[in-house]
Design a protein around this nucleic acid. Structure first.
Lengths: 219, 219
DNA sequence: ATCATATTGAGACTGAGTATCACTTGGCAA
DNA sequence: TTGCCAAGTGATACTCAGTCTCAATATGAT
């Protein structure tokens, strides 16, 4: 549910639909052009020419050139935050978050997987995109933290919601990185599977021990 | 050990010392000017005028305006990576990382605490700085991951070094945020104390449970 | 002193992001 | 329909970060 959000959500103020279509057209063109020619080598001018929109309009829709490139990533996390708002938490919070992320991923649109793979590959090619994506992650974590603390009635200074938010994005990255590396093999179901395993891997990782006499690390 | 790194490391190629002094002067002026006038409101021109260096030189030393602002943060993490290179790991890796971070912090220069507090407060005021700092963190994590995997002879795809690197920077942030918020009260010893407790808080946070019937989150 | 080599500074140039303003277009009431 | 208002669009000018090139200057070795 709420998983459609494709080009035309029926029963939307008609004018908004056009805006959404433009936004999506810009994001798609951005992904394509930046991938073909490189992020820094493509100017915003070229991008807006391809979509036949003015430069002014671009910056009205996206706050930065980078934002158009990571639209697919942004969609994922706003879906997660929306899902968290709808959800009542009970039991192990970490397990709830794992479920939630899995459900959100499973409900994403059909074309999302390809867009996301392209996005992540693109991000790796440009320091500016890496920075922008990293900040976006930090913002998502902040919102996750706030919502978790709110739902659990914990004070903002409590470390636990912060850790759980951090762990959530970490699990996502752990799961998504190899999936993207493999070209999105297996589609969304494979990704969901990986997300579940990434969440499980985290507590286990904290127990990792080094051998008593590591051969290569002697001073 | 290697904890000095103040303006003049004796027995350094004489020419390098001057470069270091310029670098440090720029970083100090950046922190001061950006704090006084705002990051976006201060131009690189004004900054280099204050230090009597050319714009060209600035960009030879720092890759971006933002880099001069987060110099104190960068110093911390390069000290950590250097310390990790020197250290032989044995036993619980998480505990080793906690120790290591504590030792590095305890060994930082006397003026570092104030510089760091100022840096973090400044970063919070500017989206551009937030993005730059977030990317810096990601780079540090990548290097931590590589070194851990190397030292432990684990394949690069193993999730555990990635989790441990992530947890290390998370613990740092958990510890530093309230410390900075309180103006660095208690100095480095207080910070070291907080780092230790942040590392301990992480496994505990993963067990957080929600009450079975949360009153405020019903749909 | 002299020569090769770094390092610096000056200036021009590109392109992102912002602000302003005139213009158009969609939505709505009479 | 017609006219009106508001919201959105496009053109243009401007600032400033970051790159590049080249000349000037310092540094160090012989």
């Amino acid at each position: 549910m709420t998983a459609d959000s494709s080009t035309s959500d029926r029963a939307l103020p008609l004018r908004e639909r056009k805006k959404l279509r433009t936004r999506r057209a810009l994001a798609d063109a951005a992904l394509r052009l930046f991938t073909e020619r490189g992020f820094e080598a493509t100017t915003v001018e070229e991008l807006v020419d391809a979509v036949e929109v003015s430069r002014s309009s671009f910056f009205r829709i996206f706050p930065a050139k980078e934002a158009a490139a990571i639209e697919a990533e942004a969609e994922l996390w706003s879906a997660c935050l929306a899902a968290l708002d709808r959800r009542a938490l009970s039991g192990l919070v970490l397990a709830e978050l794992s479920d939630l992320l899995g459900e959100v991923v499973a409900g994403l649109g059909a074309d999302w997987a390809d867009r996301y793979v392209a996005t992540r590959r693109l991000v790796l090619t440009s320091p500016a995109l890496l920075a922008y994506a990293a900040r976006h992650r930090a913002e998502v974590e902040q919102r996750l933290t706030d919502r978790l603390a709110g739902k659990l009635s914990l004070p903002p200074a409590d470390l636990r919601p912060q850790v759980l938010a951090e762990v959530t994005t970490t699990a996502w990255r752990l799961a998504a990185r190899p999936w993207v590396h493999g070209g999105g093999q297996g589609g969304l179901p494979a990704l969901v599977e990986r997300v579940g395993r990434a969440f499980q891997a985290i507590p286990a990782s904290l127990e990792l021990s080094a051998p008593e006499r590591p051969a290569d690390a002697e001073l």
